[in-house]
Design a protein around this nucleic acid. Structure first.
Lengths: 249, 249
DNA sequence: TGTCAATGTTTGTTAGGACAATTGCTGATC
DNA sequence: GATCAGCAATTGTCCTAACAAACATTGACA
């Protein structure tokens, strides 16, 4: 390869408990994402990289594979590895106008409207794979960006979460509360749709007559496949949208 | 491991050009998906599998890793590998009520409403990373399930596709037409939202006053990052929904 | 009987080596 | 000057090997 190949500065700490391939992947990812490496730029080849960093080829390969699977790099046998074109590595697994807003400095506020620690809701219980009459932890929240209400969120959790307090919920996101308790959602099935708002929803979200609602229901599970959360959310159509990136195999 | 471990029958063909790890992954995937292995069932451990099939551990590991990344298996160090719980490996990257309908035997019909081989549409051209005044191939289609109109689809393609015929489009999906020409979409960015319909849309989709619209715009790219399609679609809210499965890292 | 340490099992990480397949380039040949 | 064979560079596949880390179970000991 004749063109100039940028040598990304990489620090590998062999004493660290984090795997070498992951240390490397992190630093390479950073280099691509912060623009040190531009789309189309040739990438240092595996052998050279292994040699330079004093790592084995499998280790380097594994790190690179991580970036490739995330769409940041493109590999071609006989040719080499290069930074993927910009559009391909836009990182939006699932973002929203709301998060955009957050980035732009508009502080999101979450107001807890209702909590019921023993809510019997057959539909939610079924979604959580629990008997219909199981008393669930239920919380209704309203999200605002500045003065504008953006989302009305209803969540149901299994009974073991009945001791979650309003303070916990007010301070951060629901997922943060769950993580703090050692519960980690790994997979979520979401269904996104639209419908006419009910009158209560129209009031809460300050909708004009005829305004539609963007809806999302979610079932989240931990690594063992245990249902952790069922959510039924409504969004103001002019404040929210879902970005989904689909990778073909 | 005490419990009975099902030994999946696997045939490895070393003369085949398809990699061993992929042959193995395919057959293991089939066993999980066709129910030979039930959720929760213990999986033959790496060493035993490698020994039985006369493969090296890295090769077996790579095959298993493929299933793990697809959410079919769960690995735990010191414990073993098991088939993931059902909910986790529901395979719906992006499905819809429409496809559900198709499965239930309701034949979808696609009607081509309009074709313009030299459409100048700045918004679409910008999405395709082309100069604003580039003449694009444009097609408007209506999807019906039985008598019910479900979707109104607008697509723009780069000029090299200007020779696509109405017959091609009527026979199959747009993506099938592209694939037949050797163009393969690899990544797509989709934005899902809701809004009030315009009057033309209300008429086409046979909507009642006040009915909302579910919308999706899509930008699709090939492996090189070249934009190949821009789509702007509207769906009847009562006929369509998007299922998205999100995997946490 | 209950607790804790030792042990075995299983997956996770890393290394090093060999050869195959693909691609681009170069130089020889016509 | 054009074409093609061959070569070098690079990624892809596969193997052996070793040790580490996490977990479950067993058994010793209090």
């Amino acid at each position: 390869m004749l063109g100039f190949v940028h040598q990304i500065p990489v620090m590998i700490d062999r004493a660290s408990p984090v795997p070498l391939y992951h240390q490397l992947a992190e630093q390479l990812t950073a280099a691509v994402e912060d623009g040190t490496l531009q789309p189309g730029d040739p990438f240092e080849n595996e052998l050279a990289l292994a040699d330079r960093l004093d790592l084995s080829r499998p280790t380097v390969r594994r790190a690179i594979a991580e970036l490739v699977s995330r769409g940041l790099l493109v590999r071609r046998r006989g040719v080499g590895t290069a930074v993927a074109s910009e559009v391909i590595h836009r990182r939006d697994e699932l973002t929203s106008l709301f998060e955009d807003m957050e980035r732009k400095g508009k502080r999101p506020i979450t107001r807890v409207l209702d909590i019921d620690r023993h809510s019997v809701t057959p539909r939610a219980a079924a979604a959580l794979n629990l008997p219909q009459d199981t008393p669930l932890f239920y919380v209704e929240r309203l999200r605002l960006a500045g003065d504008i209400p953006t989302a009305l969120m209803h969540n149901w959790l299994p009974p073991q979460f009945a001791d979650i307090t309003e303070e916990e919920l007010a301070s951060g996101s629901l997922y943060a509360v769950l993580r703090a308790r050692g519960v980690r959602p790994v997979v979520a099935h979401q269904t996104i749709g639209a419908r006419r708002p009910r009158s209560a929803e129209r009031k809460r979200l300050d909708l004009a007559p005829g305004d539609p609602l963007l809806t999302m229901t979610r079932r989240a599970y931990d690594a063992a496949g245990t249902a952790i959360e069922f959510g039924d959310h409504c969004y103001r159509f002019d404040q929210y949208a879902f970005d989904v990136t689909v990778h073909e195999r």
